[in-house]
Amino acid sequence: MTLLSIDWFFIIEKVLLISGVLVLSLVVAMYSTWGERKVAAWIQDRFGPNRAGFMGLLQPLADGGKLFFKEEIIPSTSNRFLFILGPSIAMLVACMTSAVIPWGDTLVIAGRPVSLQIADVNIGILFIFGVVSMGVYGIMIGGWASNNKFSLLASVRAASQIISYELPMGLALIALLMLTGSLSLKDIVEQQRHGLWNVVYQPLGFFIFLICAFAECNRAPFDLPEAENELNGGYHLEYSSMKLGFFLFAEYINMFISSALIATMYFGGYAFPWMDSLGLDPNIVTILGFLALFIKTLFFIFFFMWVRWTVPRFRYDQLMRLGWKIMIPLALFNMLITGALILARQQ
């Protein structure tokens, strides 16, 4: 009986949505590698990839194919199980965050409202936080299982960097939560739809969150876990073939997801100006909203690349000092100001 009472449409809808979001993040991550090289070339006044296909558009496929067909080497001194587990966790965790991001408002298909968000849980932000804190394991396990001192050093660097920057990130988010009064990302977007974008109220919080997102993704100027000159590479030093590809790919997915998160939390998500006064069919507004979110996300991905190719990287002690002695006090200050302003407005 229980089997019959399951809402099959609900399951089909969610399965389609999950596959759609997954495919979207994979394709975006794939083309971010192309975009990264194009942006780098543009900034350095070069051509970038232009051989495979029109404007080099087939380059990511060629790279992926190359990685798949390369010889796979598992070092004999490594812990075999953990060695494979490392990149798997990195990839899994990178794909999990997208579940709570609202990609759009509801579509009405054949009389059924279909929400373009996989799971509207009332602890959305905390869920993201939990998943992000899991991201360390992929790198740590991979680095340790390689049984190579350079990999281990790099993974220790990555872990301490991620843990240190999680704190100011959380504090910046607390200020945002005090403002919105909800942990659900959907509610946060809906509030921005009917008011101003959160970045207007939280400029400092946005700034802190952006910097921490850079550090969490191990992107330049905080890409210390990958250092050719000191570490011979990084935590993926011993990896070859697609397992290396997964580590690199997870980084790009993380970048996509953080950009989407920044756009959702501080830049209105799928909301765009005058979206309620256009007088269009709600379905079209929803699709336009999704496109708006996508454009905002692409802008932040571009911003990530822009920073990478213009700002020189930090030294490791500078990175730690920035995290603990500047970002955390700033985030606390931001929280205090926000709280004081909210109290003052209530009275």
């Binding site: 905390l126 936080f129 939990g130 899991m134 281990l152």
Partner: peptide
């Protein structure tokens, strides 16, 4: 979620850290 963030995300990372070193 708090259980995961605090225990699995923070405390166990430190444990793993020390053990690996």
């Amino acid at each position: 979620v708090v259980h995961i963030i605090v225990y699995a995300g923070a405390i166990m990372v430190l444990f793993l850290y020390v053990l690996m070193l």
